[in-house]
């Protein structure tokens, strides 16, 4: 089974160390790990460091992968592109990277399957430049999934999606993780989605780790106050699942004077 553990991990952006000293327990295949934290906490930087795109101190210890580092698939936040490529071509391209020119039936079958599973076969032949933000995000997700990941690093994959698509995408990722023993790290802002879909959570703030472990143990009212500077409750709904309810926020930290409702 694939595992990943962070040991004192930091990352350089230029000459600056933007994240440092991040250590975690070993996460294992079949788990969805949510990476959460306020803006500029270092989530994207950590993903790039884990994907090997940035250097830095510490060790990203990966074990049990079949394909070494090529099994680690990183899905960055997608900038708009003007490339004259269709969705289908972009997904095929992701799959064939570092492979031969020849496109086999198995490649096309894999692309078909990914597009169908995300429900975007109808935009397969649309140009990337014509897509809406949400469609672009789904195309990007399709590109990532088409590479048969063993470890998935997804940077805010649902930020541009409507509620239905968010549920669809996160359910799909969780099912893939369970079926194929993938280890998925997903940066998310919606803590209710985290509580619903993630098994574990890694909290970042100011470029450092503020805790990791099972969601219900780590996401506490105190943590929300310290990391997000919000006054919140965590309550059980009528269907038995936990929800974060925000009551107010602090302008400067510490005191929480602004109460909603």
């Amino acid at each position: 089974m694939v595992t990943l553990q962070l040991d004192g991990v930091g990352a350089f952006h230029g000459r600056h160390l933007t994240i440092s000293g991040i250590s975690t327990q070993a996460f294992a295949g079949g788990e969805v790990v949510a990476v959460i934290g306020p803006n500029a906490a270092g989530k994207s930087t950590l993903f790039k460091r884990m994907a090997g795109l940035l250097g830095g101190p510490g060790e990203v210890a990966v074990a049990g992968t079949q394909r070494g580092t090529s099994g680690i698939c990183y899905m960055p936040q997608d900038p708009p592109t003007s490339a004259a490529l269709t969705v289908y071509e972009s997904v095929l391209l992701a799959r064939k990277q570092n492979a031969s020119w020849v496109v086999h039936d198995t490649d096309l079958a894999a692309v078909d399957e990914v597009l169908a599973s995300l429900g975007i076969a109808d935009i397969a032949f649309r140009s990337l430049g014509e897509l809406s933000g949400g469609q672009r995000q789904l195309a990007s997700l399709a590109q990532t999934l088409a590479r048969d990941p063993e470890i998935l690093l997804m940077d805010e994959p649902t930020s541009a999606l409507d509620l239905h698509r968010q549920m669809q995408v996160l359910s799909l990722v969780r099912d893939l993780v369970r079926q194929r023993g993938i280890l998925a790290f997903i940066a998310l802002h919606d803590l209710n989605q985290v509580l619903r879909f993630a098994d574990k959570v890694l909290v970042l703030a100011g470029g450092r780790s503020r805790g990791s472990g099972p969601c219900k143990e780590v996401i506490t009212v105190d943590l929300l106050r310290q990391v997000y500077r919000v006054d919140a409750r965590i309550e059980c709904c009528s269907q038995g699942s936990s929800h974060v309810i925000i009551d107010g926020y602090s302008a400067a930290g510490g005191e929480i004077p602004h109460r909603a409702g």
Partner: peptide, 22 residues
């Protein structure tokens, strides 16, 4: 021609191309 896939990937942005292993 040998780098055809990698060159095409560049048009998806540097981060995306790098994430593909380019």
């Amino acid at each position: 021609l040998r780098r055809a896939w990698a060159l095409t990937a560049l048009r998806l942005g540097d981060d995306k191309a790098a994430s593909f292993g380019v």
